[in-house]
Design a protein around this nucleic acid. Structure first.
Lengths: 133, 133
DNA sequence: ATAGATGTTCCAGTCACTGGAAGGTCAAGG
DNA sequence: CCTTGACCTTCCAGTGACTGGAACATCTAT
Protein backbone atom coordinates (compact mmCIF):
# COMPACT_ATOMS: atom_id res chain seq x y z
CA UNK A 1 0.00 0.00 0.00
CA UNK A 2 1.11 3.54 -0.72
CA UNK A 3 0.72 6.33 1.76
CA UNK A 4 -2.54 7.61 0.28
CA UNK A 5 -4.21 4.30 0.77
CA UNK A 6 -3.09 3.82 4.38
CA UNK A 7 -4.09 7.40 5.00
CA UNK A 8 -7.64 6.66 3.87
CA UNK A 9 -7.69 3.33 5.68
CA UNK A 10 -6.31 4.68 8.97
CA UNK A 11 -7.94 8.08 8.90
CA UNK A 12 -4.57 9.74 9.52
CA UNK A 13 -3.28 12.50 7.21
CA UNK A 14 -0.34 11.47 5.03
CA UNK A 15 1.68 14.24 6.67
CA UNK A 16 1.09 12.67 10.05
CA UNK A 17 2.10 9.24 8.84
CA UNK A 18 5.37 10.62 7.48
CA UNK A 19 5.89 12.34 10.80
CA UNK A 20 5.28 9.07 12.64
CA UNK A 21 7.91 7.46 10.47
CA UNK A 22 10.28 10.33 11.26
CA UNK A 23 9.98 9.74 14.98
CA UNK A 24 10.22 5.99 14.59
CA UNK A 25 6.66 4.88 15.34
CA UNK A 26 6.34 3.04 12.03
CA UNK A 27 8.97 1.84 9.62
CA UNK A 28 7.44 1.25 6.21
CA UNK A 29 9.56 -0.27 3.49
CA UNK A 30 10.49 1.54 0.32
CA UNK A 31 9.71 0.66 -3.27
CA UNK A 32 12.30 1.09 -6.01
CA UNK A 33 10.81 4.49 -6.91
CA UNK A 34 11.29 5.79 -3.38
CA UNK A 35 7.63 5.50 -2.43
CA UNK A 36 6.81 4.18 1.01
CA UNK A 37 5.29 0.71 1.00
CA UNK A 38 3.10 -0.20 3.97
CA UNK A 39 2.34 -3.72 5.08
CA UNK A 40 -0.88 -4.70 6.83
CA UNK A 41 1.01 -4.65 10.10
CA UNK A 42 1.99 -1.02 9.46
CA UNK A 43 -1.61 -0.08 8.81
CA UNK A 44 -2.58 -1.91 11.96
CA UNK A 45 -0.03 0.07 13.95
CA UNK A 46 -1.21 3.33 12.47
CA UNK A 47 -4.81 2.58 13.34
CA UNK A 48 -3.70 1.72 16.86
CA UNK A 49 -1.87 5.00 17.06
CA UNK A 50 -4.81 6.95 15.71
CA UNK A 51 -7.09 5.45 18.30
CA UNK A 52 -4.64 5.98 21.15
CA UNK A 53 -4.13 9.59 20.09
CA UNK A 54 -7.88 10.10 19.91
CA UNK A 55 -8.03 9.02 23.55
CA UNK A 56 -5.57 11.79 24.26
CA UNK A 57 -2.46 9.69 24.91
CA UNK A 58 0.78 11.55 24.24
CA UNK A 59 3.08 10.35 21.51
CA UNK A 60 5.42 8.98 24.15
CA UNK A 61 2.55 7.12 25.80
CA UNK A 62 1.65 5.78 22.38
CA UNK A 63 5.18 4.56 21.90
CA UNK A 64 5.00 2.78 25.24
CA UNK A 65 1.58 1.33 24.52
CA UNK A 66 2.67 0.12 21.12
CA UNK A 67 5.71 -1.57 22.64
CA UNK A 68 3.53 -3.22 25.26
CA UNK A 69 1.08 -4.27 22.60
CA UNK A 70 3.83 -6.01 20.69
CA UNK A 71 5.35 -7.56 23.79
CA UNK A 72 3.51 -10.82 24.26
CA UNK A 73 5.04 -11.20 27.68
CA UNK A 74 3.78 -7.86 28.97
CA UNK A 75 1.98 -7.46 32.29
CA UNK A 76 -1.42 -5.82 31.95
CA UNK A 77 -0.47 -3.86 35.07
CA UNK A 78 2.03 -1.89 32.98
CA UNK A 79 -0.66 -0.95 30.49
CA UNK A 80 -3.09 -0.07 33.23
CA UNK A 81 -0.57 2.19 34.90
CA UNK A 82 -0.05 4.22 31.73
CA UNK A 83 -3.80 4.52 31.26
CA UNK A 84 -4.41 5.46 34.87
CA UNK A 85 -1.83 8.22 34.79
CA UNK A 86 -3.36 9.57 31.64
CA UNK A 87 -6.80 9.33 33.19
CA UNK A 88 -5.62 11.35 36.17
CA UNK A 89 -4.28 14.00 33.81
CA UNK A 90 -7.62 14.15 32.02
CA UNK A 91 -9.44 14.51 35.30
CA UNK A 92 -7.24 17.38 36.27
CA UNK A 93 -7.76 19.14 32.97
CA UNK A 94 -11.51 18.70 33.24
CA UNK A 95 -11.44 20.18 36.73
CA UNK A 96 -9.43 23.17 35.55
CA UNK A 97 -11.73 23.76 32.61
CA UNK A 98 -14.79 23.46 34.81
CA UNK A 99 -13.35 26.04 37.16
CA UNK A 100 -12.76 28.39 34.25
CA UNK A 101 -16.21 27.66 32.95
CA UNK A 102 -17.85 28.48 36.25
CA UNK A 103 -16.07 31.81 36.56
CA UNK A 104 -16.55 32.78 32.95
CA UNK A 105 -20.17 31.82 32.63
CA UNK A 106 -20.92 33.79 35.76
CA UNK A 107 -19.22 36.83 34.27
CA UNK A 108 -20.82 36.43 30.86
CA UNK A 109 -24.18 36.18 32.55
CA UNK A 110 -23.56 39.37 34.45
CA UNK A 111 -22.54 41.34 31.36
CA UNK A 112 -25.28 43.35 29.69
CA UNK A 113 -23.73 42.96 26.26
CA UNK A 114 -25.06 46.24 24.98
CA UNK A 115 -23.40 49.34 23.57
CA UNK A 116 -22.47 50.78 26.94
CA UNK A 117 -18.93 50.44 28.23
CA UNK A 118 -19.68 49.07 31.71
CA UNK A 119 -18.59 45.48 31.81
CA UNK A 120 -18.27 43.11 34.77
CA UNK A 121 -15.98 40.86 32.72
CA UNK A 122 -13.37 43.57 32.33
CA UNK A 123 -13.97 44.70 35.88
CA UNK A 124 -13.16 41.24 37.14
CA UNK A 125 -10.05 40.92 35.00
CA UNK A 126 -8.87 44.26 36.27
CA UNK A 127 -9.47 43.49 39.92
CA UNK A 128 -8.38 39.94 40.60
CA UNK A 129 -8.11 39.79 44.36
CA UNK A 130 -11.45 41.45 44.99
CA UNK A 131 -14.34 39.36 46.18
CA UNK A 132 -17.03 39.00 43.56
CA UNK A 133 -20.70 38.08 43.83
CA UNK B 1 10.02 48.81 39.32
CA UNK B 2 12.41 46.27 37.88
CA UNK B 3 11.27 43.02 36.32
CA UNK B 4 11.79 40.96 39.46
CA UNK B 5 9.50 43.16 41.46
CA UNK B 6 6.68 43.13 38.89
CA UNK B 7 7.18 39.42 38.55
CA UNK B 8 6.54 38.95 42.25
CA UNK B 9 3.68 41.45 42.23
CA UNK B 10 1.94 40.03 39.18
CA UNK B 11 2.74 36.39 39.76
CA UNK B 12 4.11 36.08 36.21
CA UNK B 13 7.61 34.68 35.59
CA UNK B 14 10.13 37.27 34.41
CA UNK B 15 10.57 35.24 31.25
CA UNK B 16 6.90 35.57 30.49
CA UNK B 17 6.96 39.30 31.06
CA UNK B 18 9.84 39.67 28.63
CA UNK B 19 7.93 37.56 26.17
CA UNK B 20 4.88 39.78 26.59
CA UNK B 21 7.04 42.77 25.80
CA UNK B 22 8.39 40.97 22.74
CA UNK B 23 4.91 40.48 21.35
CA UNK B 24 3.85 43.99 22.23
CA UNK B 25 1.48 43.41 25.12
CA UNK B 26 3.41 45.69 27.44
CA UNK B 27 5.95 48.37 26.68
CA UNK B 28 8.01 49.13 29.76
CA UNK B 29 10.49 51.97 29.66
CA UNK B 30 14.22 51.50 29.95
CA UNK B 31 16.59 52.83 32.55
CA UNK B 32 20.03 54.12 31.62
CA UNK B 33 21.56 50.75 32.49
CA UNK B 34 19.29 48.94 30.05
CA UNK B 35 17.02 47.49 32.75
CA UNK B 36 13.28 47.51 32.09
CA UNK B 37 11.39 50.01 34.22
CA UNK B 38 7.73 49.23 34.86
CA UNK B 39 5.13 51.80 35.84
CA UNK B 40 2.08 50.98 37.92
CA UNK B 41 0.05 50.89 34.74
CA UNK B 42 2.38 48.21 33.36
CA UNK B 43 1.98 46.13 36.46
CA UNK B 44 -1.76 46.61 36.22
CA UNK B 45 -1.73 45.37 32.63
CA UNK B 46 0.37 42.37 33.53
CA UNK B 47 -1.99 41.41 36.32
CA UNK B 48 -4.88 41.78 33.91
CA UNK B 49 -3.08 39.53 31.46
CA UNK B 50 -2.26 36.98 34.11
CA UNK B 51 -5.87 36.77 35.15
CA UNK B 52 -7.16 36.59 31.58
CA UNK B 53 -4.66 33.85 30.79
CA UNK B 54 -5.68 31.95 33.90
CA UNK B 55 -9.23 31.97 32.54
CA UNK B 56 -7.83 30.32 29.46
CA UNK B 57 -8.06 33.23 27.03
CA UNK B 58 -5.57 33.03 24.19
CA UNK B 59 -2.90 35.66 23.86
CA UNK B 60 -4.80 37.17 20.93
CA UNK B 61 -7.97 37.29 23.01
CA UNK B 62 -5.95 38.93 25.74
CA UNK B 63 -4.73 41.53 23.31
CA UNK B 64 -8.32 42.24 22.27
CA UNK B 65 -9.55 42.34 25.86
CA UNK B 66 -6.75 44.66 26.87
CA UNK B 67 -7.58 46.99 23.99
CA UNK B 68 -11.25 46.97 24.97
CA UNK B 69 -10.31 47.56 28.58
CA UNK B 70 -8.37 50.66 27.62
CA UNK B 71 -11.03 51.90 25.23
CA UNK B 72 -13.38 53.93 27.36
CA UNK B 73 -15.87 54.05 24.49
CA UNK B 74 -16.11 50.26 24.12
CA UNK B 75 -19.41 48.42 23.95
CA UNK B 76 -19.73 45.69 26.57
CA UNK B 77 -21.23 43.59 23.77
CA UNK B 78 -17.78 43.33 22.21
CA UNK B 79 -16.30 42.04 25.43
CA UNK B 80 -19.14 39.64 25.94
CA UNK B 81 -18.73 38.22 22.46
CA UNK B 82 -15.08 37.40 23.07
CA UNK B 83 -15.95 35.76 26.36
CA UNK B 84 -18.83 33.80 24.91
CA UNK B 85 -16.73 32.40 22.10
CA UNK B 86 -14.10 31.36 24.59
CA UNK B 87 -16.76 29.82 26.78
CA UNK B 88 -18.03 27.79 23.85
CA UNK B 89 -14.50 26.56 23.20
CA UNK B 90 -14.16 25.53 26.83
CA UNK B 91 -17.45 23.67 26.70
CA UNK B 92 -16.30 21.77 23.66
CA UNK B 93 -13.01 20.84 25.27
CA UNK B 94 -14.79 19.65 28.40
CA UNK B 95 -17.09 17.52 26.28
CA UNK B 96 -14.17 15.98 24.42
CA UNK B 97 -12.31 15.26 27.63
CA UNK B 98 -15.38 13.76 29.23
CA UNK B 99 -15.80 11.48 26.24
CA UNK B 100 -12.18 10.37 26.57
CA UNK B 101 -12.66 9.95 30.29
CA UNK B 102 -15.70 7.75 29.86
CA UNK B 103 -14.00 5.45 27.41
CA UNK B 104 -10.75 5.29 29.33
CA UNK B 105 -12.19 4.79 32.77
CA UNK B 106 -14.31 1.99 31.40
CA UNK B 107 -11.22 0.33 29.96
CA UNK B 108 -9.11 0.89 33.03
CA UNK B 109 -11.84 -0.63 35.11
CA UNK B 110 -11.96 -3.68 32.89
CA UNK B 111 -8.21 -4.26 33.05
CA UNK B 112 -7.01 -6.70 35.67
CA UNK B 113 -3.72 -4.91 36.13
CA UNK B 114 -1.82 -8.03 37.08
CA UNK B 115 1.20 -9.76 35.61
CA UNK B 116 -0.73 -11.52 32.86
CA UNK B 117 -0.64 -10.12 29.33
CA UNK B 118 -4.39 -10.06 28.62
CA UNK B 119 -5.49 -6.45 28.51
CA UNK B 120 -8.80 -4.96 27.40
CA UNK B 121 -7.13 -1.57 27.00
CA UNK B 122 -4.77 -2.84 24.34
CA UNK B 123 -7.53 -4.95 22.85
CA UNK B 124 -9.67 -1.87 22.41
CA UNK B 125 -6.85 0.17 20.90
CA UNK B 126 -6.14 -2.65 18.48
CA UNK B 127 -9.76 -3.12 17.41
CA UNK B 128 -11.33 0.30 17.06
CA UNK B 129 -14.47 -0.40 15.05
CA UNK B 130 -15.49 -3.37 17.12
CA UNK B 131 -18.36 -3.07 19.57
CA UNK B 132 -17.22 -3.15 23.16
CA UNK B 133 -18.91 -3.78 26.48
C1' DA C 1 37.50 43.72 45.94
C1' DT C 2 34.40 40.35 45.61
C1' DA C 3 30.39 37.45 45.98
C1' DG C 4 25.73 36.83 44.89
C1' DA C 5 21.52 38.41 43.24
C1' DT C 6 19.60 40.50 39.54
C1' DG C 7 19.37 42.15 35.02
C1' DT C 8 20.30 41.75 29.70
C1' DT C 9 20.16 39.31 24.89
C1' DC C 10 19.86 35.48 21.95
C1' DC C 11 19.20 30.77 20.59
C1' DA C 12 17.01 26.45 20.98
C1' DG C 13 13.48 23.34 22.57
C1' DT C 14 8.74 21.99 23.80
C1' DC C 15 4.29 19.17 21.42
C1' DA C 16 2.26 17.16 17.56
C1' DC C 17 1.64 18.29 13.83
C1' DT C 18 0.57 21.46 9.44
C1' DG C 19 1.48 24.29 5.30
C1' DG C 20 3.93 25.13 1.37
C1' DA C 21 7.60 25.01 -2.08
C1' DA C 22 10.04 22.46 -5.47
C1' DG C 23 10.38 18.55 -7.74
C1' DG C 24 9.99 13.16 -9.14
C1' DT C 25 6.62 9.26 -10.67
C1' DC C 26 2.71 7.04 -12.54
C1' DA C 27 -1.71 5.93 -15.21
C1' DA C 28 -4.86 7.42 -18.70
C1' DG C 29 -6.17 9.77 -22.83
C1' DG C 30 -5.16 11.95 -27.33
C1' DC D 1 5.21 10.23 -27.70
C1' DC D 2 3.22 13.85 -25.01
C1' DT D 3 0.58 15.88 -21.78
C1' DT D 4 -2.43 16.25 -17.82
C1' DG D 5 -3.48 15.37 -13.25
C1' DA D 6 -3.08 12.63 -9.27
C1' DC D 7 0.11 10.97 -6.39
C1' DC D 8 4.56 10.70 -4.28
C1' DT D 9 9.18 12.68 -2.40
C1' DT D 10 12.13 15.92 0.68
C1' DC D 11 13.02 19.96 3.21
C1' DC D 12 12.04 24.17 5.64
C1' DA D 13 9.22 27.02 8.42
C1' DG D 14 5.39 28.03 11.42
C1' DT D 15 1.96 27.12 15.16
C1' DG D 16 1.07 28.74 20.91
C1' DA D 17 2.84 30.30 24.75
C1' DC D 18 6.18 29.95 26.84
C1' DT D 19 10.71 27.76 29.08
C1' DG D 20 15.65 26.58 29.67
C1' DG D 21 20.18 27.76 29.26
C1' DA D 22 24.40 30.16 27.83
C1' DA D 23 27.13 34.14 28.07
C1' DC D 24 27.55 38.43 29.76
C1' DA D 25 26.48 43.16 32.33
C1' DT D 26 25.03 45.48 36.55
C1' DC D 27 23.85 46.36 41.19
C1' DT D 28 24.21 45.68 46.37
C1' DA D 29 26.39 44.44 50.47
C1' DT D 30 30.26 43.03 52.93
Amino acid sequence: MNIGEVSRASGLPAKTIRYYEDIGLVTPQRAANGYRTFRDSDLHKLSFLGRARSLGFSIEDCRTLLALYEDRGRASADVKLVAQKHLAGIEQKIAELQQMHATLSHLVHACAGDNRPDCPILADLAAPATAKA
